[in-house]
Design a protein around this nucleic acid. Structure first.
Length: 201
DNA sequence: TTCATCTTATTTTGAGTGGG
DNA sequence: CCCACTCAAAATAAGATGAA
């Protein structure tokens, strides 16, 4: 039985509003996640999309801690450090899986979620990140609803992207010369370590 | 050896880019 | 906007060569 969590964090501030570059100083307004259970053949048996405002953040920790894989986009250098001040355990030590980092490893550059989503899934992000901050700072029921919808949407895109790569072994995006590029990736879990080769002779 | 010039390295700027 | 990182272009340096 395998548990996976896809998540996305929206912040309360922009980098321009804090002193030094540290996502931990941005504050987190909302966290959306999709948690799913896979069977031993990695088939999804059940999954659920959830959102958490700050008051409910403590409900996040067990979900994260039980996950076999925590998937995000630029999560290792953004979402995780942003969330870190709210935790009382080493969240960085959990099994994070950062799709942007994987693409960067192969292609050598950081590629936006929007670009990958457009070319791979044929689907654009529903909004842009800075608006998430604007919605939070403006406040009001409507804006908070938009904020949540945006965050949820990013989680879904992340999940669909991950599943696409799992199934097809590649993804597309447009580079800065606007030509379509393809990157081959393997998102499967590492095979059980073989002990056979150890200790011969 | 030294100067002038051409070729090849090295490095250092500069510009672009992702996340919210 | 901020930081870290990458690539390209420009600026420097380092050889290499030929001739006086």
């Amino acid at each position: 039985m395998i548990t996976e969590v896809f998540f996305d964090v929206e912040t309360k501030k922009l980098f321009s509003e804090i002193d030094k570059f540290d996502p931990a100083d941005l504050g987190v307004s909302i966290v959306s996640l999709y948690r799913r259970i896979l069977d031993e053949n990695y088939i999804e048996k059940e999954g659920k999309l959830m959102s958490f405002w700050e008051a409910d953040f403590q409900k996040l920790w067990p979900i994260f801690q039980e996950a076999n894989r925590i998937i995000g986009f630029n999560s290792i250098n953004f979402d995780v450090p942003a969330l870190e001040p709210y935790t009382n355990f080493p969240i960085k030590k959990l099994p994070h899986f950062d799709i942007m980092a994987k693409v960067k490893d192969v292609f050598g550059r950081r590629i936006s979620l929007d670009s990958i989503s457009k070319e791979t899934l044929g689907r654009e992000k529903s909004d842009i990140g800075v608006n998430a901050v604007l919605y939070w700072q403006t406040g009001g029921k409507e804006n908070l609803k938009k904020l949540q919808r945006y965050c949820d949407d990013d989680v879904i895109i992340t999940k669909e992207l991950y599943d696409f790569v799992l199934k097809n072994g590649y993804l597309h995006f447009k580079d800065k010369w606007n030509t379509q590029r393809r990157v081959d990736l393997d998102f499967s879990y590492p095979k059980e370590k073989s002990q056979k080769q150890i200790g011969l002779f």
